[in-house]
Amino acid sequence: MTLHVAPAELDLEPAPLLSVAGVGRFYGERIGCADVSFDLWPGEVLGIVGESGSGKSTLLRCLAGIDRPDEGEVLFRGGAEPLDIYSVSEQERRRLMRTAWGIVHQNPRDGLRMDVTAGGNVGERLMDRGDRHYGQIRERALDWLQRVEIAGARIDDRPRQFSGGMQQRLQIARVLVSEPRLVFMDEPTGGLDVSVQARLLDLLRVLVRDLGLAAIIVTHDLAVARLLTDRLMVMKDGRVVEQGLTDQVLDDPHHAYTQLLTSAVLSV
């Protein structure tokens, strides 16, 4: 699969997958995030960067259907009709989260069932989706373990027997096996040492490209953003201060805060 676009499609753009308008979330007096609007198109990878406490995780939770925003709306276009994810029932939203979306948590413990085998963790998502053939589920689980570079022989081990990097790769397999259209990731490589990070990043880069996924990735690491994302949103104090093509924002930052952020690192 390639992302080759026929000339006619330049005029005939598909609709955005996710449309975010005026999203805000407040914790009492404190702003979690405010005034966030953007469109995400199929196959696009958006990065959210900013210092600690700038509202990245708060925003991601609002977008992913985990926390209801106090203001604004999030429209998801999975089928023909756009769906306001907070106006549908809780049940409908959960179904969407299980089938069309994937969420990769920073801490793999939040995304894995620690008492279920590796194969079970991956297979469970397929069963949620309605797959029933045990042999096929196990075969696909095995295939996905190998894609995230976990030896097939470990299929019946439980995640607690895995290293942190392996747990994170298992979580990614669990999320991607059901072929979501849109994936949310909060610091997917945080808490891992640098060599493990590099391997995971390369894996993510290849998977995102091969599957044509749309993804929103929160990171405080500009090198990660450079490697994985097409577009970048820079947050400060809960607000988006600058956004654009990733290399534009990193190489020719316009906002004072982005200039500070990019000058603080040696080379990204």
Binding site: H4, R231, L245
Partner: peptide
């Protein structure tokens, strides 16, 4: 952005 990327790709 997605148009810029398409221009660069092709």
């Amino acid at each position: 952005p997605r148009t810029v990327l398409d221009i660069r790709r092709r």
